[in-house]
């Protein structure tokens, strides 16, 4: 086993272990923290694959953005420090089954399709990603990029509309 494989297995064990802890722990805040560690582990896996840009984006979006939002909403709920109720037996069985089915599906896909490892090093630079993102020709992502931007813009405008204070009529003039 090479050093690279050892690192891979350590990272995978870290991701899976913290993921299991995140769904089994009794305190909701701790579960958010375990989720955070799991996501950091995924970012570590990207660093191991030497795709630093994706790793940084993983950290910015998931760790710095989504987990912080989750933690904020936990803080704003009542009784965030209390232990959660034990899940019922039926729920436990159902979740274990769904995990098994998901695993079986993924394993089946990987086993049957026989993905080949690429020999030559993965070529990426930020410049290349940027150019391809705004390219209109073949393999360009200009259209999806713009569509996603418009979606995000619409979401932001919607947020502002919901959050805006409606002023009394006489003060508008």
């Amino acid at each position: 086993m090479t050093a690279s494989q050892v690192i891979f297995y350590i990272l995978s064990a870290f991701i899976l272990g913290t993921a299991v802890l995140s769904v089994t722990t009794a305190k909701i805040f701790r579960s958010a923290i375990w989720l955070l560690f799991s996501l950091i582990g995924v970012a570590g896996l990207y660093f191991w694959l030497e795709v630093e840009f994706i790793a940084a984006v993983q950290i910015v979006v998931y760790v710095g953005g989504i987990v912080v939002l989750i933690i904020f909403s936990i803080f704003l709920t009542q009784q965030s420090g209390k232990e959660m109720l034990k899940a019922s037996m039926l729920r436990n069985i159902a979740s274990i089954l769904s995990v098994l089915f998901g695993f079986a599906l993924t394993y089946n896909l990987i086993y049957n399709n026989n993905f080949q490892a690429k020999d030559k090093p993965f070529d990426w630079t930020v410049n290349k990603i940027g150019t391809q993102m705004l390219e209109t020709g073949e393999n360009g992502y200009a259209l999806p990029f713009e569509v996603v931007s418009i979606l995000l813009l619409a979401a932001m405008v919607g947020c502002i509309v919901i959050a805006i204070k409606s002023k009394p009529e006489e003060k508008n003039g």
């Binding site: 940084a56 984006v57 910015v60 760790v63 912080v68 630079t125 930020v126």
Partner: peptide, 23 residues
């Protein structure tokens, strides 16, 4: 390769430590 993006990415994690300490 990602230089300054690394700074912004990692520094966004430091808030987690503060939230954790506070809670």
């Amino acid at each position: 390769n990602i230089g300054v993006l690394f700074f912004t990415a990692i520094s966004s994690v430091s808030v987690i430590g503060i939230l954790m300490a506070g809670w």
